[in-house]
Design a protein around this nucleic acid. Sequence first.
DNA 1: CAGCATCCGACGCGATACTG
DNA 2: CAGTATCGCGTCGGATGCTG
Lengths: 117, 117
Amino acid sequence: MDAVTQQTRHGEVCPLDTTLQLLAGKWKSIILCRLMQHELRYTQLLKTLPGCTRRMLSLQLAQLEADQIIQKQIDASYVPIKTSYRLTPLGKSLVPIIKLMDQWGEHYIQTVTMPEN
Amino acid sequence: MDAVTQQTRHGEVCPLDTTLQLLAGKWKSIILCRLMQHELRYTQLLKTLPGCTRRMLSLQLAQLEADQIIQKQIDASYVPIKTSYRLTPLGKSLVPIIKLMDQWGEHYIQTVTMPEN
DNA sequence: CAGCATCCGACGCGATACTG
DNA sequence: CAGTATCGCGTCGGATGCTG
């Protein structure tokens, strides 16, 4: 069951919540930051995510793919098989929002989080 | 411990993730949609959230307040005490992003979720 | 009116091991 | 290389009842 279907079970549908659900998940935000810049292969992606296990990366990628935010491409012409991930058009349409949230988060960290340290 | 401090424990800080953490929570998105329009009192807010219990509303409001997204005002001049909630300046600075995410979510629901039903 | 305390179930996520 | 399977724990959130 994808994020949105899961939400509709609870009745009340808030589109804002739909968007948030799609982005909610342990590594999704960083994954999207990476894929925003360029397509990446599984292991390359994993290297840029210190602390992320293969299991978690697979889970998050599978969810993003099921939600049509990213797409997987499998090159099986040689073994070992290589897969790469990139944003779908739908995923690319999220980029402006992601950039805004990233900027806002940076501002938040500097004005709210850091002064408390 | 607030959302951001919690995140920094895991090392890697992604500002996008910071923003997402602040908005993550069962009723926060709808609460913010309501407070975007006008200040509301606890019980009024509760009435606009079908299925939300008092406990959950209190929890979410407390977190949003701790994260400085909303502020509580207590009018104790009469009993029973009345409290009201509104966005802080920081919370208001989120409004453009929230509106974008809401629009994107609506588009997503129409083009991805609905055709599947 | 506006909460808090307690109990409990579901799920997200980590650790670890196995596979085509 | 790119995953899947299994187990277990911690946190989120629901149900319910109490309080200043």
